[in-house]
Structures are given as structure tokens and as C-alpha cells.
Nucleic acid binder design. Structure first.
Lengths: 230, 230
DNA sequence: TCAATTTTTTGAACATGTTCAAAAAGCGGT
DNA sequence: ACCGCTTTTTGAACATGTTCAAAAAATTGA
């Protein structure tokens, strides 16, 4: 079903490129699949030979966006940064990478949540790898931070931040304010708060609360590993 | 543009009823606007005379759902309940009310976030009234709880809970697990945690954190009052 | 009551996502 | 070079959300 021959990847890439371009210009709704096909120099039906739906194409875009985000954020995570600075770095660049794709909320969220499984190997492994990649970014943000966060929380912090980031993505998706100003404000305020929380995690009370929160969101997010395909 | 004559409300209601019925049976995507029009005994074009789009119709449904939620939750909030019990009551009934409408995530979220303005008086006032109504539910949950939450937080608690509830709605919207099992688990775990947090708010550290969190989410949620119409 | 005006209804037309059967192109073996 | 086979491409057809101009119905003013 999903074409996987050697040169198929190339054709698929042409479609992704074209849709990236057109989507960024006209937005999700206004970009017609016919125009994408035309821009890619192929017929409408052909496009459907490579992607099951417009939304799946958007899903591919989402993946590319995350890749871009990684490339944007990683070089900014230098040893010696404050934790707050690193949080800002990762989150700000995430918004930067998403910027061209306002109006993609629903499509992106579906890609991010309901089985991040891409068109190729739709295995749980792939999802796991993607998750690991994003995790890596947050792990880096934590390990390069100076001073180091308290030992008590150092291990869980990347996951916590990753979860917060997902929440911010949700917020972004339905933020209709110009320039995503609301989301940017959210990030601006969340970063220092999270950094402060990290420090406070030295206190047993706070630590206990954070443990609970982590456990909570983790238990809910679980099942991402074994997704229920729709 | 939006018909507001006396009997128009009746016709509009017929459409809402029909769509409620069909949406609940076949889901959002599979329910055709033509079938809704037919079920309402009118022509396709007529339906569009009353609602600008399918999504707006879903938005109306969302409002009805919240109304139903209110009716479900309110009688359960009896003086003497624990705070945790009340939180569970409100959140569980919310999920119950939403149950028939799985797959409505995007449409409902857009209704809930991007200007909850209904088709009639699309004023900021209306949004404010709706917000107040939901607030009322949480205020009731807090004031009937025994023992009473610490004074320090009693005032802000309804808003905090309301914000958490919005987060849960976001989660629900993209929860593809059977029977929204994941969301239910989330609620099951969140309720005791929130109750515990409320108690702990007696401690200055915790209080300070909660203040920050409230301020954070509030600052981001602000602008709901003065929505940017798309 | 009748004509003018406004509100409501209608059915046809349109745009776009999606499907599909058939044609075309590519390919391996002889 | 030719035959089967698979992969790819194509264009037509379909379903459904949406628009619109014209018809019908209701309302208003004299």
C-alpha cells in the first residue's frame, strides 16, 4: 500500500517540499491538493498514491518541523546557560519553527498525539525513536544548565519539561492571537517558573508534589507507547 | 446576516436537534449536512441560512453539551462532600456529557477557545456570561466542600480548577483510547492531587508556587476577554 | 386589498478532498 | 525484442461543504 521503492522516496519528498511551500504561503485550508500536485509536477491522483490524505501530508510537515526545531534549538544549548535560559531557548525555537504553520493546529496535534506514526514504518518503534529525539533535546537542556538542578529531580526534569512542552503545543494550536503573542507570553512566564520549581524541588514538600504531578501526567500520557490506532 | 426573527429560533432549534441526533450516531465527519437538513425537513441551502458552517453547528452542540454538564454536575455538589469528591463529580460528569461526541475534538476546542461566541449576539458579554456560568460550577464545588479549603486559596481555587478543566478538555479532545479511558484515568488521579494541593497551600512555599501557576495560566488565558476574531 | 419590501426557501452550481478503474511506464526473464 | 508482472500515473467520477441568484412566502405600509 504505502509505496516504498527506492525512487518513491524522492517523489514523496517532492510532494512534501511543494506542500511545505504552499502550506506556508496559503495556510492549511486554502492550499488545495490540486495545487500541491501541480507544483510537484504530477497529477492529483498521483499525490494520493503517496499520501492517504491531506492531513497525513500535514503530519509529514509536522515531523519536518520538529526536525527543524531540533536544529534550531540544539546549538543554543551551551554549557553554562541557566536552566531558565535553556528552557526559553528550546521553547522559543519551537515556536519559531512552528511559526509558518499557523492554522495547522488540529492537523499537527493529531500528528503529535494520535499515533505519531508516520507513513513509512508505522511501528511503535518509530514513535519511540521520535519521542527519544525530543527527549534528548530536553535532556541536553538540563545537563548543560549551570548550576545543575537538584539531584532529586535531575532525572525526571527532562520528562517534566517535555510534558509541559506538549501542553504548550496544545495551547499554541488554538491560539488565535496575532503572532501567537499569547503563547509567547505563556512561554516567557513559564520558563522562570519552571526554573524556580526546579530549585524548590529540594524541599521535600515540593518534591512530593512534583512527583505526583509527573506521575499524573505520565500515567495519562502512557498508552502513547501502545497507541490505539483509529 | 444572522437571522434573529421570532420564529427563526425555532427553526434553528430544529437544526440543532437534528444535528445532535445525527452527530451522536454517526460522528462529526460522517454526518452530512444534507442529512441534517433532510432530518430537519428543510433544504440544504436553508440550513446554511441559519448556520454559517458545519463547524458552527458543532459549536452550538458544544454549548448544549456544557448546559447538560451543568445540569448533571450541579445536583451532585452537596454541602459536606470532600473537595476531592466534588472535583471528581464535576470532572466525571463533564466527561459523561461529552461522551456521545467523540471525534468532535477540533470543532469543540475551536468553540471553547477561539471565541466561544455563539451565532446570536457575538458579543464579548456572551462569552463572559458563559465563563461565569462555568465558574459558578467550580465556585459551588469549592464552597460546598467540607472541610473548607484554606482561606489563603479559597478565592482562587475555582479559577484554578476551571483552568485545569480546560486542560483536561484539551486532553480529551485528542484522546483516542477506547471510552476515553486515558482521560478518565487522568481525572481519577488529578482529583486527589488537586485536593492535596489545596490543603498544602497552607504552606507559604506551596502557596507561592500556586500563585505563580495561577498567574501564569491566567496571563496566557487572558485575551479570551478580548478575543481576536479570525 | 394590493404593491413594495423583507425574510426565508430552494435547487443548481462550485470547489475540493477522495476513490477508482484503466492506461502507461518500468522491469525481469526468456 | 517480447511477454508477463508490478509499480506508477492519469483523468474521470463521486461526496460533501459552501455559495448564490432566483423563486416563494411572509410582512409591512398605504
Amino acid at each position: 500500500m504505502a509505496p516504498s521503492s527506492p525512487k518513491a522516496a524522492h517523489t514523496r519528498q517532492k510532494l512534501v517540499n511543494a506542500s511545505a511551500k504552499l502550506f506556508a504561503i496559503h495556510g492549511y485550508e486554502k492550499t488545495t491538493l490540486r495545487s500541491i500536485a501541480a507544483e510537484s509536477g504530477m497529477s492529483l491522483g498521483s499525490a494520493y498514491y503517496y499520501f492517504e490524505s491531506k492531513e497525513q501530508l500535514a503530519g509529514e510537515l509536522y515531523r519536518a518541523t520538529r526536525e527543524a526545531h531540533r536544529n534550531l534549538a540544539w546549538p543554543r544549548l551551551l554549557v553554562g546557560n541557566t536552566l531558565e535560559g535553556n528552557i526559553r531557548a528550546v521553547m522559543d525555537t519551537a515556536l519559531d519553527a512552528l511559526e509558518p504553520f499557523q492554522g495547522f493546529g488540529p492537523a499537527f496535534l493529531r500528528a503529535a498525539f494520535s499515533g505519531g506514526a508516520g507513513p513509512e514504518a508505522a511501528d511503535a518503534d518509530v514513535a519511540a525513536v521520535n519521542r527519544a529525539k525530543e527527549f534528548g533535546l530536553w535532556r541536553q537542556a538540563v545537563t548543560t544548565a549551570r548550576p545543575q538542578p537538584p539531584l532529586a529531580i535531575r532525572n525526571d526534569l527532562p520528562e517534566l519539561l517535555w510534558l509541559v512542552q506538549r501542553g504548550i503545543l496544545l495551547f499554541w494550536a488554538y491560539d488565535a492571537s496575532p503572532g501567537r503573542e499569547r503563547t509567547r507570553r505563556l512561554v516567557r512566564n513559564a520558563a522562570p517558573l519552571l526554573a524556580r520549581l526546579s530549585v524548590l524541588s529540594r524541599l521535600p514538600v515540593v518534591r512530593a508534589i512534583l512527583d505526583d504531578v509527573i506521575g499524573l501526567v505520565r500515567s495519562a500520557a502512557d498508552g502513547d507507547r501502545t497507541p490505539y490506532r483509529r
